[in-house]
Amino acid sequence: MQASKWFDICDKSILSPNTGVCALVDGKQIAVFWESKNDQLYAISNYCPFSKTHSLSRGLIGDSKGELLVASPLYKQRFSLQTGQCLDDQAISVPVYPVRETKGRIEISLD
């Protein structure tokens, strides 16, 4: 099997704790979040299917019963950061992407 291709995004030091940024990877808009308490990174699509805008990276993150989530900044629907599943509408989910930190740099894969 071919090894995953990782795209270099940015230096981790420019992230603010418990917020998101949007990365443009191969034409896709991907929201990257840094949860600082456990120092975890998450990447999901930046596209909010409810408002039809690329905005999820600008949402507020938190948890519901332990499940980490981002709330859409426009109409507040919540999406799991781990699975992309919308917590307020079972029929809706957004893609999630592998993300990692390598030597202080954030990297995303589209696999």
């Binding site: 949402g59 938190g62 519901s64 332990g66 980490l68």
Partner: peptide
């Protein structure tokens, strides 16, 4: 407890 959410954080 937990991480907080879109209700309590703001």
């Amino acid at each position: 407890s937990g991480h907080g959410c879109e209700i309590c954080k703001p």
